[in-house]
Simulated assay, not measured.
Amino acid sequence: MKKALRIILWIGGIILALAIIGAFLPGNAFVSRSITINAPASTVYGVLNDLKTYNSWMPWNQKDPYMQVQYAPVTEGKGAWYKWKSNHREVGEGQLTITESIPGKTVTTSLLFEGFDEPSVGGWELSPKNGVTEVTWRMDANMGHNPLNRWFGLFFDRMLGPDFENGLKQLKEKIENGTLKPAEPKLSLEEITAPAMQVLTIMDTARTMADVGPTLQQAYGEIGELVKNQQLDLTGMPLSWYYTGKEPYVLEAAIAVNRLPKTTSGRIRFRNVPPTRSVVVHYYGPYEKSYLAHDHIREWLKSSGNKAKGAPYDVYVDDPTTKKSMYEVRTDIIQPIE
């Protein structure tokens, strides 16, 4: 009996010692691996920014063919997520969310594993050079206050590093052999007479492409308040003019309304837009690739002998939150012509 008691006390002492030591171990663990892919950064970014491609190269997705996966309504870009559930001991259960996407540069994710209090922050950084792209996959995990998780953190790099290497190897192989590639936008062009509009507008500047969305959202919010307060009716979808084609972007956010407001406030201005002979490209794809539509218009102007008349403007025909993919979202890029 005494011997058994000593064994129990000895085991308890070891557990207590491990718990005490664990409390003083680092609260964060980090893993990072890199590889060079013989492809432009735009191609690599397009794959990483689309969660539907992950089954083709993500190592954990391939360990359990019976893994249950649930996708968000939108699977590309910021806010896209998927949840997984598996009985495989190396896969488990969790959720991955894209928290930030900067075209051609980074895709940042939040990864929450079952049993952890805080999500791990990670993602991919792209460094293009001479037509190839160095891809760095990183993860910074908050191990929380659980001593067992902190002990696990000591082996984080050793345990996950090989999976990172395997995933990057598959990503490289499948991008380079063409079996894995991003979806391409769809475009169609036609000549139209753009209708007359009465619009409330705000002029602003977005420092980078990543700032364009938040800048427009802020402007539309301000205009929306005026529309609500003065009980105006909307007569079209949100639109915006772009006065520069490179950073920083000088733009004018606008919303078409049914009548002249009694007063305007702050940055908001009102103006009439006359009907104009125009060329329009109906573009289906992510906003960051809409430059393809502008390129298409420039090529058409050159080949047709027509001349642009003023700045082009974008009409956001579809709400991205109502579509499963950004490649189903329509934007009309309209260029007035002489």
Results as ranks from 00 to 15, higher is better:
M1C: 11
M1T: 08
K3H: 08
L5I: 05
I8C: 07
L9W: 11
F24A: 07
I37Y: 05
A39V: 02
V44H: 02
V44E: 03
V47W: 02
D50C: 02
D50A: 06
Y54H: 02
W57G: 02
W57F: 13
Q62E: 12
Y82W: 13
K83C: 15
K85N: 15
E90T: 08
I98R: 01
S101F: 08
P103W: 11
K105E: 10
T106P: 06
V107T: 09
L112V: 01
F116Q: 08
S127D: 11
K129G: 12
G131A: 11
V132T: 14
T133A: 14
E134D: 07
M143N: 01
H145R: 07
H145A: 15
H145Y: 14
L148K: 12
F155Y: 07
L160D: 04
P162V: 15
N166P: 07
K169C: 00
Q170Y: 08
K174V: 00
N177Y: 08
N177R: 01
G178T: 05
A183F: 01
E184H: 03
K186W: 02
S188C: 08
E191A: 09
A194I: 00
L200N: 00
A210C: 04
A210G: 04
A210Y: 14
Q218S: 12
E222T: 01
I223N: 05
E225M: 12
S240A: 10
Y242H: 08
Y249K: 05
A254S: 08
R259K: 13
K262Q: 12
G266I: 02
T276Q: 15
T276V: 10
V279S: 03
V281Y: 00
Y287L: 15
Y291H: 14
A293F: 00
D295Y: 12
K307D: 03
D318K: 08
T322N: 04
K324G: 09
K324Y: 13
Q335S: 11
P336V: 05
